[in-house]
Design a protein around this nucleic acid. Sequence first.
DNA 1: GTGGTCTAGACCACT
DNA 2: GTGGTCTAGACCACT
Lengths: 142, 142, 142, 142
Amino acid sequence: MFVRIERGVSTPISRQIAEQVRAQCLAGLIQPGDCLPSVRQLARELVVNVNTIVRVYERLAAEGLVEMRHGEGTFVLPPSTTTNLAADLKHQREQYSREYQAIVRRGLLLGLAVPELRRMLTATASDAKTQISKENSSEKRS
Amino acid sequence: MFVRIERGVSTPISRQIAEQVRAQCLAGLIQPGDCLPSVRQLARELVVNVNTIVRVYERLAAEGLVEMRHGEGTFVLPPSTTTNLAADLKHQREQYSREYQAIVRRGLLLGLAVPELRRMLTATASDAKTQISKENSSEKRS
Amino acid sequence: MFVRIERGVSTPISRQIAEQVRAQCLAGLIQPGDCLPSVRQLARELVVNVNTIVRVYERLAAEGLVEMRHGEGTFVLPPSTTTNLAADLKHQREQYSREYQAIVRRGLLLGLAVPELRRMLTATASDAKTQISKENSSEKRS
Amino acid sequence: MFVRIERGVSTPISRQIAEQVRAQCLAGLIQPGDCLPSVRQLARELVVNVNTIVRVYERLAAEGLVEMRHGEGTFVLPPSTTTNLAADLKHQREQYSREYQAIVRRGLLLGLAVPELRRMLTATASDAKTQISKENSSEKRS
DNA sequence: GTGGTCTAGACCACT
DNA sequence: GTGGTCTAGACCACT
């Protein structure tokens, strides 16, 4: 599982993590039955307090996406009738859209021009893709 | 002075306001000696609590950007040796840049495509410009 | 850390607290790296509202004297080039001096004689010392 | 009438003024029937807003110490049965005493030594006396 | 009218 | 546990 967080940014860390786990479940990168990294391991990896990860997993469990099995680990559940994955995704994207629009407006109010923002978008996207592919290959090796 | 806030977004209201005031001071849209809207007036305008505005103005005062005069109002100060406006602007943009990049990455991780993000950027920007020009004209009239 | 506040006096509580924290930092009674009492604990101790302490700590943080770490506590920072401790102390004492002189003048204008003021000074000082030593010993015990 | 105020000090200006007027009435420096300086004149003299003086006079009138005669001025009233001057004085001194003690404690907490405070007391007192006698003579001349 | 301080209480996020 | 933000409302002092 790939999780990447950004600190010192207003989006809460816990939300960044939960969002990415959800997205990967929905995208099928994580399959039902898969075991998520342990709370302690993920906490160590992201240099975050253990309780923060616990909260994230609890939230995802409350959503019916995963199941925490005491002493065993946290496992992805098969999509049930209650878990409406499509609806979740839609909801998540809508929320994202609002945040994205807000930040674009903030940029304009800060005096940044649209082409500048567009450039940053492109640059960030290509960077992100490079990073992800690197991590993919490094993970295969490890 | 124009301030526009977005609710239900992770960036705190107070930070959104402070950011915009700073940007307008730095851009010269608000000149030294100018009087900011009163704490209560701005609170009414933005439908936020008085204390939220007080906090914003206090922070700006601590930064040396404005001065709160008891019973008179809050005034923009001339740039002093201590207040390095250029550095402030630079810092603010760097912070913004980090946030912008983080949100773009979040979008990609949510499975959004770059052209989609680009479309949202353009749409938001044109919307924002329309709104601002509307408000400008309505302010002139009032 | 010892903080003692006086109510029903014109100096605001928040200013009394900030003054004492600053003085103890400058005097080295609180060392860089030390953790100040938590916002809630100090509020409980002094029987003031949590927000009052938050404001004090925020001001001290803006001055560069302390740093508030989310979820951890508030820590004294090492003196930096920007924080001119000696100048701060000097400024604080000058401010104090003005207040002290003002109150002496007020006493005279109220018809109090100098020896009377001198007596009050001595009495208050010895009282204060007794109280402080008591608290010191009680703190050691606890 | 002599009034001297100190700015940037926590004792409110209005209270400083009221206190001095009361003290001078009680000391007999201002006699029943005497006319206080007009609101505007005193405001100009002390470089204070007119309303601040109005408030002070209203408060003194409420205490039964003076009477504001519309279009004529503000006059000192003879002590009535209702106005218990001695009680007022006592109350005022008690309040003063609390403030004095508080400031002495603040000084100690700031790291000032008692002899230092004593020196400041003496110096201020002698200064104040010199100033007052100067003003007395200059007032006689004017 | 203006800002300054304080309270009580809520809800959130990080360690 | 820790700090961060926000609300609602009070009372005070200066212009």
